[in-house]
Design a binder for these strands. Sequence first.
DNA 1: ATATCGATTATCT
DNA 2: GATAATCGATATG
Length: 182
Amino acid sequence: MLTGRIVEVEAYLGSGDAAAHSAAGCTARNSVLFGPPGHAYVYFIYGNHYCLNVSCLPDGEAGCILIRALEPRLGIKEMARKRGLAEDIAANTTGKISTHLRALTNGPGKLAQAFGITRERDNGKDMTSRESDLFIAEDGFAPPKIQVTPRIGITKSAEQPLRYIIAGNEFVSRKVLTQRRG
DNA sequence: ATATCGATTATCT
DNA sequence: GATAATCGATATG
């Protein structure tokens, strides 16, 4: 089993959000977004990568959360293998977080590859049930602080503060502008 | 450290 | 035919 803690997400709104895939209405690609909440919307982008979203709003309303980064928990070696990285490097018994460990799941395309998520296999899966082979569950961790920033990598509606990260977490896809150096 | 750039294809106009 | 919610490599200060 592979598990990771969600540390970074972005919201794509059901209406009035030009950056959302649902902005132009329901198509074959995005139909999951218009279905019931809690289901996987997986799309293929830039001819290379898959990205995982979860539908959120009630049946009939499009809207979703893009999962942008995870803190790897269980199955680190398997994730490294799927990512094409050396397995032993990821086995960090030292407690220090290596760049290789970070590289497993600190981006939407990376985490999809680490988990072997594809549109063909996973689009439409119910992510609310532990019976599903792809699901979200509560792990009891209470984030110290949630930070909100603009979304990343989009050209439309780029100013809206709809990206949510666990403040200070080492596995977010980009370091936030913090005052380093004194 | 930050910036720019090429890869590669499903999807929509 | 153009576009895209990315990544990894390369270049530059």
